[in-house]
């Protein structure tokens, strides 16, 4: 039985040190290229930086997971192969993959390298998950954000791997790894480029007393003076359909499951993941510290609500698909 883990994001070496110090059991990182799903300017690690970060984390008993969770390009899979080779050489504690071709490569070439299945693989049922376990020896699956607590419990009873769920941060309303909304509008997608609604395509425009946020020239939201201005993530904008204007897909809210941690532990979840490798050190420090406390309390079956509205996108929180009413 695995011990319960708090898995925290580290977009930079400095953020990694903050997360490790604030109480993470494990941190997850990516290389500075298109091989991971947070391929943002100024983020991520070179192999040298990762080697140092691993030393820092291991000296403090914290694990380091490497996300190589985009899909390798046809005709040029070299950056992805190199990332896996480096992961083995640098002795990361696990590598987080989504692409079947890469899972096949890693499982055959590095049988001792621990494999986690990325949420980008969208494995949403026991049969799919056990397929990855049997075929590639996957040891943990990051569950898609489309499942309710009772579904998660059922899945955990039927799989031969640990499960990790998202606990806090940005939340996709779509099945991850199966969404090309971003590339439909901007030409860049999570699967191929490691970005969604990229900053390079974002503009803001003054509209009287309000502000319009745009992506590739299309308005994703309009904010009145009193409203908190949010980033124009495509699926969290206001649109018009059926004669109504509103948040058709999802509101600009953040996932926060602090209130249901004990239920999820009871459902057999083995790791809680905080989203946000693109976030500041201050944010990482606060969220990790708060969740450390919440997870420790939840282990003793105590529930505490962490109010982090000031850290949430748009100031709101949701438990998303974990509760059926969301669907």
């Amino acid at each position: 039985m695995e011990t319960l883990e708090l898995v925290c994001p580290a977009g930079t070496p400095a953020a990694l040190r903050v997360a490790v110090t604030a109480g993470a059991d494990a941190v997850y990182v990516g290389f500075r290229d298109e091989t991971n799903a947070r391929n943002f300017p100024g983020l991520n690690f070179s192999p040298e930086e990762l080697a140092e970060a691993i030393d820092f984390a291991h000296e403090r008993g914290v694990k380091v997971y490497l996300a190589v969770n985009t899909y390798a390009k046809a005709g040029n899979n070299e950056p992805w192969i190199k990332a896996i080779d480096n992961a083995d050489r640098l002795k990361v504690d696990a590598i987080i993959l989504a692409d079947i071709g890469l899972l096949d490569y890693a499982a055959n070439k590095y049988p001792d390298l621990r494999l986690h299945l990325s949420v980008q693989a969208s494995a949403s049922n026991p049969t799919s998950i056990n397929f990855y376990v049997r075929e590639f020896g996957v040891r943990r699956v990051v569950l898609p954000r489309v499942l309710s607590v009772s579904e998660i419990k059922e899945i955990n009873g039927q799989i031969d791997a640990g499960s990790e769920v998202f606990a806090f941060g940005g939340m996709c309303p779509m099945a991850e790894g199966r969404c090309s909304l971003s590339s439909y509008l901007t030409g860049q997608s999570p699967n191929m480029n490691g970005v969604c609604s990229p900053a390079s395509h974002v503009t803001y425009e003054q509209l009287g007393t309000g502000l319009a946020s745009k992506l590739a020239g299309l308005t994703i939201n309009n904010f009145e003076e009193h409203e908190q201005v949010g980033y124009p993530t495509l699926c969290k904008g206001r649109f018009m359909a059926n004669g109504k204007t509103g948040y058709l897909f999802e509101e600009p809210t953040s996932l926060n499951i602090s209130t249901i941690l004990p239920e999820l532990i009871d459902a057999g979840v083995t790791a809680f993941k905080i989203e946000g490798r693109q976030r500041s050190k201050a944010y990482i420090g606060q969220v990790v510290k708060s969740f450390r406390l919440a997870v420790d309390k939840a282990k003793e079956n105590e529930k505490i609500e962490i109010n982090m509205d000031h850290l949430s996108e748009g100031g709101g929180n949701t438990t998303g698909a974990f509760k059926k009413s969301w669907m």
Partner: peptide
């Protein structure tokens, strides 16, 4: 993938909702 799990070893088709972005995945 859960359908592929059942169909492996039999002749089958794979639809556009299964991610095949490269040669290695296709070969698999």
């Amino acid at each position: 993938l859960s359908a592929i799990n059942f169909l492996r070893g039999k002749d089958h088709a794979i639809g556009p909702f299964v991610n095949i972005y490269n040669e290695a995945t296709l070969r698999y």
